[in-house]
Design a protein around this nucleic acid. Structure first.
Lengths: 122, 122
DNA sequence: CATCAATATTGACAGCCGTCTATGTCGGTG
DNA sequence: CACCGACATAGACGGCTGTCAATATTGATG
């Protein structure tokens, strides 16, 4: 059995605990290119509102959430939309329109990548 | 045996894989307070130069590095110093003066906290 | 004490970022 | 087609951030 768990969202997607993006932080220093790519993800999570939005999406039933479910974070609706766009541009979430509503969910490869950076692969 | 590894730096420090700071991102939404505290860490890692500096410290022999060992990241010396201060203010690293040199190392509780946020505790 | 090497601090400046209001777009409904 | 609700985009604005050159501080060394 696997003692190693990542996000539930990921478990349904792939059984590998492999590092999909780059070397772990603690093994060898990040190259310039890797650091730029990964910093984009950390930067996106580096705002309290965005972190809460991401958390709300990740913890929502089914691993996805409608904007209307998560938009009560203390800022205006356009600001929420702006932050969700940033999360999407950073590759952390994906969005899909279904009728009137837009659903966001955590992008599967991403959290695995972050986990890999923190050295969880072995 | 433990299938679960965190940073080597941490392994020597504590055997627990417990969550030291807050609920994992994927289980329940982060509170306002938690999100602000954790966002500080992500934000500090959200700059390519700081991420490289952190990686250089984490991957350096003994888990610590002198500034002179890691300051070749393409920016001026004051800028390196500025970034190291930011990492320290974010609680990601600690610094210690030994003679002429200043040594930085990864703050043990921190990476465990980040790992906890990404849900690696169970 | 004078000097040097390693690191930190200060001050300045351009550019990015988070926020808002106003407005646009798109789908559903009558 | 007209209207409404959900969400996105545009534009503006104040504040923060990354960078540098210049200077200060701190410890070792002669």
């Amino acid at each position: 059995m696997s003692n190693l768990k990542v996000l539930p969202i990921l478990e349904a997607d792939a059984g590998d605990g492999a590092v999909p993006c780059c070397a772990p932080l603690s093994r060898e220093p990040l190259g310039v290119e890797d650091s730029e790519r990964i910093a984009v993800m950390f930067k996106a999570l580096g705002d309290p509102v965005r972190l809460r939005l991401f958390s709300l999406i990740a913890s929502h039933e089914g691993g996805e959430a409608c904007v209307c479910d998560i938009q009560d974070v203390g800022v205006s609706q356009p600001t929420v939309s702006h932050h969700l766009k940033k999360l999407r541009d950073a590759g952390l979430v994906t969005s899909e329109r279904r009728g009137t509503w837009v659903y966001y969910k955590v992008a599967p490869p991403v959290v695995a990548a972050l986990a890999g950076v923190l050295d969880l692969s072995s």
